[in-house]
Amino acid sequence: MASTFAYRRQEVVNQEPAIKDFKDRWPALFCQKEINAEFQRLMAVPLEEKFMAQLDLHSSQLIRVVRSKGGTTRQKTAHIIETLDQTEDIHLRRESVLKALIIFLGEDPDDLIKEYFDSTADDAQKDLEQLTMGVFVIRKEGEGPQEPAEKIGIVIEGVEVLNELNSVASACALLLGLIYELNLAYPKCLHFTFEVLQKIIMELDKHKMSPKVQNLFCRLKSSE
């Protein structure tokens, strides 16, 4: 994959192939290991390693900032903060922090993380086929986020490009990597979320922040 990187990059940028066609041409790229490797080739930064380290580094400050906000944000994050306070599971804690972050930014976690029960797998499949971009989580009927999911994966342009991931945070990191690698635009409804993931979590182009993200960045620094 390293030897064909330049050719593959030219194809992505110049031809803008459909995801299904590109996946058929380069199936080896669409696995966790190769997504990390491709991002390293592209950005000279380790993807999941840095994403998790930075997310963990900022988690306490992020939650402190979220807790300080009242009104609708407090109402919408109440159950997420409760889950965070009650669990020691690192995967669930990271997932909770990401969901709280999205709400704090005025966006909807459901636009990024689609959750289903296995009893509605057929409906889930139809829904995901219409999805432009997102992370999906399938759980056993009646089980909550405290239990391991049956399946976690990524969909782009209605195509399931990755599955069998071990956490929502990992899926979010890999989705960010795929956006870079496939030269895709951030979803408009999650623009601020991905800007934070890019500029605060991954520290890429962090000198060019929107006012909302700059404000969050300053609040994180002031609470350190």
Score class of each variant (00 low, 15 high):
residue 21 D to W: 00
residue 22 F to G: 00
residue 23 K to N: 02
residue 23 K to I: 02
residue 24 D to R: 07
residue 24 D to V: 05
residue 25 R to K: 12
residue 25 R to P: 00
residue 25 R to N: 04
residue 27 P to I: 01
residue 28 A to D: 09
residue 28 A to K: 10
residue 30 F to C: 00
residue 33 K to Q: 11
residue 33 K to E: 15
residue 33 K to L: 08
residue 34 E to W: 05
residue 34 E to C: 07
residue 36 N to H: 10
residue 36 N to K: 08
residue 36 N to I: 08
residue 37 A to M: 05
residue 38 E to Y: 01
residue 38 E to S: 04
residue 39 F to D: 01
residue 39 F to V: 06
residue 40 Q to H: 14
residue 40 Q to P: 02
residue 41 R to T: 03
residue 43 M to I: 10
residue 43 M to W: 04
residue 44 A to H: 13
residue 45 V to K: 09
residue 45 V to Y: 01
residue 46 P to K: 08
residue 47 L to E: 00
residue 47 L to A: 07
residue 48 E to W: 11
residue 49 E to F: 06
residue 50 K to R: 13
residue 50 K to I: 08
residue 51 F to R: 00
residue 51 F to T: 03
residue 52 M to N: 14
residue 52 M to R: 07
residue 53 A to P: 04
residue 53 A to H: 13
residue 54 Q to T: 09
residue 54 Q to M: 13
residue 55 L to E: 03
residue 58 H to R: 12
residue 58 H to K: 14
residue 59 S to T: 15
residue 60 S to H: 14
residue 60 S to Q: 14
residue 60 S to I: 08
residue 61 Q to V: 04
residue 61 Q to K: 15
residue 62 L to I: 12
residue 63 I to H: 03
residue 64 R to P: 06
residue 64 R to Q: 11
residue 64 R to E: 13
residue 65 V to H: 08
residue 65 V to G: 02
residue 65 V to R: 05
residue 66 V to I: 15
residue 67 R to D: 11
residue 67 R to W: 06
residue 67 R to N: 10
residue 69 K to P: 00
residue 69 K to W: 03
residue 70 G to C: 07
residue 70 G to F: 10
residue 72 T to F: 08
residue 73 T to I: 15
residue 74 R to T: 05
residue 75 Q to C: 09
residue 75 Q to R: 07
residue 75 Q to T: 13
residue 75 Q to A: 14
residue 76 K to H: 08
residue 77 T to F: 03
residue 77 T to L: 04
residue 78 A to G: 08
residue 79 H to D: 06
residue 80 I to W: 10
residue 81 I to V: 13
residue 82 E to W: 09
residue 83 T to V: 15
residue 83 T to L: 11
residue 84 L to A: 01
residue 84 L to P: 01
residue 84 L to C: 06
residue 85 D to L: 11
residue 87 T to K: 03
residue 88 E to N: 15
residue 88 E to Y: 11
residue 91 H to I: 00
residue 91 H to D: 09
residue 92 L to K: 07
residue 94 R to H: 15
residue 94 R to Q: 11
residue 94 R to Y: 02
residue 95 E to Q: 12
residue 95 E to H: 12
residue 95 E to K: 06
residue 96 S to D: 05
residue 96 S to I: 02
residue 96 S to Q: 10
residue 97 V to I: 08
residue 98 L to Y: 01
residue 98 L to F: 01
